[in-house]
Structure formats: structure tokens, C-alpha cells
Write a protein that binds this DNA or RNA. Structure first.
Lengths: 224, 224
DNA sequence: GTCTATAGTCGGATAGAC
DNA sequence: GTCTATCCGACTATAGAC
């Protein structure tokens, strides 16, 4: 637990530890990372981990919380805007356009942005080996974002937001983006790329947006 | 290295170790799994790991090789059949139908089959932290399968198999399936499912096949 | 081929000095 | 609050008995 009154120096140590832990856990996994390594990367002392977080597990939870607040602060304006539009009503074309924008942002964030990469990798590791940290991330990020997208999908296609098909379809959209992070190594080799930078990310966005457009159009044809 | 002449008992120990290692590495990661644990799961002795594989790393390579031969034996007939059809020529509709079948198989394999789950998890861990083991898996499984799919895609849509867009599109297809393994925990929670069994897998197949149909149709419209 | 014993390393946690 | 020293447990690898 965080002490009630924290000096600026203490807060700085805390932040450095959380940041380093997030990066190293994401890159090497929880088991693959030692507290000594984290302390060294944060220019902090090993003992400070126990002091600030009670131990390695506490540091994992703190990293998860950090992710939740980070993403929420990034996504809050976008979600608010969508929420507002949902309440005042929007046309299917408008919803479709907003979906395009979301895909663009999501692909850029997940597949290409290096700072975001740490977060994505951390979350993926939590997904593959769920711990208490995942519960917070799921409740704070995953579920609300997925729900928003389902609502947008309903506006764009007319399919009920909470229908099984809609929820699964939204997962397939997310999956297309996520794969370019997960399978990055295979993608790089097969494409002959050295990295997924802005240029490559643009190509991914184009393809995934093309897929989205095709799927939305087909679904809309199903419900005239 | 495998000794030149192996008794049946030795071979059995070897196999038990590789099988156990594959499962545990996939579930817990390489660092998260101890050789003691593997030996116990295989009903073998700790020393036998050093004897048969030289050490923990050798066991990882052996597990990778096991995956390659397993998948190749499963996929060989399907690939041969496609290869044959490619040589004698096939209609776009025929190619599209074959793509549907591939998606069905792939989703069933990746997302639902429990025995396959071990393999998928192992591969995903290798992708996120590439080692020499990944090289074999990539060359033996990944690259050839992806290449086949690109050829099928060309037959179905008319887009060149090795164009950037085709290769990326095939990755988005794979990504849709893979995500249901990676993000399984999030999917289960959001869908209110307890597992991804045959029933759930059927729903995934339906959605992903629907997506595939929509994308293929759109691409074909682009090249009349 | 299989197993036991052991050497050597590294990890997380803690107590106590400052 | 920060840092050092240290304990104790767990791990891999190896040597040698059988």
C-alpha cells in the first residue's frame, strides 16, 4: 500500500519502479524478471520495492493500475464524444465513420506505438496467465471499451449491440489489430520488414479498414 | 542430441519429456517452468533431461521440432490437395470454398481443441520472445502455411498472392482466429462463457467465415 | 539409461543501520 | 524513506553410483 503522505522524492521512486516494472514484465514476463533488475532499471534500491509495494506482486498490481489510469485518460475524450453522439443520435454512415477512426487509432496504438507496446505486451501476458492484476484491467479498460464499440456497431449496422454476433464480431476487429503485435515477429519475417513504424502501420490500417468496410457493408445488406 | 541407438524405454522417456515440456512451457512460459516440474510431469528423472537434451534449452528445441513434425503431418494432406488443385486450376468460387474450409479448420484448431492449445500457446510464447526454437517453427510451419493461403487468396479474388495487401490480409484472417486463444480470458468474461468448446467454436467459425465472405466479395468487386 | 547427491547460482524477502 | 547485508529457498547442471 502507498503510504498516506509521500514526499516528492518518494513519489518519483514509486513512479520509476512502476514504469520499469511495466516495461520489463511486458518484455520478459513476470517470472522472467527479477526485482533486482527492476530496481536497477529504475535507479532505485531493491528494498524500496518491499517498502512501496509490499513485494513483487504488489508491483504487478501497481503496474496494472497504472495501465488503467493511463488508458482511461487517453480514451476518456473519445469515449465521451461517442457517448454524446449516441445520446443525441447518429446516422449509420456517421457511426461507420467513427468506427473507421477507432480502428485507425487502435491499430496505431496497438501495433506501432513503442510506448504503447509495453502496455500491450503486459496486458497480453496477463491474459495468458490471469492474475488479480487482470481483473482490474478487464474491468477498467477492456469491458468498457468493448461495450462502446458494440454500441457503435449497432448504430452502424442495425444489429443489436449486445447480441452474440455483434460482441464476437467486435472481438474479430480487435483480433486483427492485436495480431500484428503478437505475431509481430512472424509478420516482420514474412513481409521482409525491419520494424512496424508509421509507414508500415499505415498499410495495416488500410487493410484492416478495408476489411471493416466490407464487413459493415455486408451486415447492413442483411438488414435492409 | 539424441543418442544414435535408443532403446524403446529411452524413447518413451524422451517423448514423455517433450510432451510435458511443450505443455508446461506453453502454460507457464519457459522461465516459469522448472526442469523438476517437467521431470515430475513426465514421470522421469531430472537427470534424464540433461542426458537426452543436454539441458533445458535443448528441451525447448526438441519441443519446437515436435510441433513442426506434428503440424506437418496434420496439414500435409490438406496442403497436398490444395497444391494439386492449384496446378490443375480452380475457379474463384472453388478457391473461396476452400478458404472457408481452411478458416473452419484453423479456428477449430486454434481456438477450441485442447490438445492444440498447448501447441498454440507454446508458439505464441516463442513469438513474443523469439529464440532459436522459433526459427524452426517459422520455417517449418508458419511460412509455408501462410504462402499457401496467399495462393488460395489469389485464386479466390484475383489479387496477386505475394502482393503486400494479400499477405497482410491473410494475416488479418489468422489474427481473428488467434485472438480467441490469446484473449480467451477476456472473451469468456465478456461472453459469459465458461469455456470455448465445440458449441462456442461453431459460433466463432460462423462469424469469422461471415467476415471472410464479406472481404472476399468486396475484393472481387474491386477487380471485375 | 536411470537415478542420487551435490556444487554453484540466483531469486525474493527481511532486518536494521543511517 | 532509503539503502545494505544477509537469510533462505529454488533452480540448473554435473559427476558418479548403480
Amino acid at each position: 500500500m502507498k503510504p498516506p503522505i509521500a514526499s516528492p522524492a518518494a513519489e518519483q521512486t514509486r513512479n520509476a519502479l512502476v514504469t520499469a516494472a511495466l516495461r520489463l514484465f511486458g518484455l520478459q514476463g513476470f517470472d522472467g524478471t527479477s526485482t533486482r533488475e527492476i530496481a536497477a532499471a529504475a535507479n532505485a534500491n531493491i528494498g524500496s520495492i518491499a517498502y512501496h509495494f509490499g513485494g513483487k506482486d504488489g508491483l504487478r498490481m501497481a503496474a496494472a493500475d497504472h495501465i488503467v489510469t493511463t488508458i482511461q485518460s487517453i480514451a476518456a475524450p473519445a469515449i465521451g464524444q461517442i457517448q454524446e453522439a449516441l445520446e443525441t443520435g447518429m446516422s449509420p454512415a456517421d457511426a461507420h465513420r467513427r468506427l473507421d477512426v477507432v480502428v485507425e487509432r487502435m491499430v496505431g496504438f496497438i501495433a506501432a506505438r513503442p510506448e504503447a507496446g509495453e502496455i500491450v505486451l503486459f496486458v497480453l501476458r496477463e491474459l495468458s496467465r490471469p492474475s488479480a492484476a487482470l481483473d482490474r484491467i478487464y474491468a477498467g479498460v477492456f469491458e468498457p471499451v468493448h461495450r462502446q464499440l458494440c454500441l457503435l456497431w449497432e448504430q452502424a449496422t442495425g444489429e443489436p449491440a449486445e447480441s452474440e454476433r455483434t460482441r464476437l464480431t467486435v472481438f474479430t476487429l480487435i483480433g486483427q489489430a492485436v495480431y500484428f503485435r503478437i505475431g509481430r515477429e512472424a509478420v516482420l519475417r514474412r513481409m521482409g520488414w525491419n520494424e512496424i513504424g508509421p509507414g508500415e502501420a499505415g498499410k495495416l490500417v488500410e487493410v484492416i479498414k478495408g476489411n471493416l468496410d466490407a464487413i459493415v457493408a455486408a451486415r447492413r445488406r442483411d438488414r435492409p
